[in-house]
């Protein structure tokens, strides 16, 4: 089920540098730009506009004071449920995106990651499976 994520709203409240996001949920729904949802559709576009920020365009990850794990050749990616869970709910410092992505978008980006970057897993994720993991 898609929800107007309370967590997302709270996050927006905390981070709002100005008033934009500091609105009760009812008003937030009428905001001009659909800021609370990612517009990208399809695996490559979703990966490129969200995941690539940290996991990098080639999914090789990155290392600084901490690190972003590579998704390329990452054995954890074998578990579709694990990846879906992390995209929806986050993992440690990684934010969850369940409030900002539809079931279809989550399925698309998870399927993309699991069939690219040297990953070749045949068990595709369906939007229904994503809905159940919310």
């Amino acid at each position: 089920m898609k929800r107007t994520s309370v967590r997302l709203l709270m996050a927006a409240l905390i981070l709002a540098p100005v008033t934009l996001a500091v609105l009760p949920a009812a008003q937030a729904a009428s905001i001009l730009t659909p800021e609370s949802q990612f517009a990208a559709q399809g695996g490559p576009a979703l990966y490129g506009s969200i995941c690539a920020g940290c996991h990098m365009p080639g999914a090789q990850g990155a290392v600084g004071a901490g690190h972003y794990p590579a998704l390329a050749g990452n054995p954890h990616v074998a578990s579709a449920g694990y990846v879906v869970h992390n995209v929806l709910h986050g993992y440690h410092g990684m934010p969850g995106f369940g409030g900002e992505l539809s079931d279809q978008q989550v399925a698309d980006v998870v399927n993309y990651v699991r069939t690219h970057f040297g990953n070749a897993y045949a068990d595709a994720v369906s939007p229904d499976m994503v809905a159940k993991a919310r």
């Binding site: 800021e35 506009s49 995941c51 940290c54």
Partner: peptide, 13 residues
């Protein structure tokens, strides 16, 4: 620009 939310992820990428 001072971006938060989805646009901030998109610009970061």
């Amino acid at each position: 620009g001072y971006l938060f939310g989805p646009h901030a992820y998109e610009f970061t990428a």
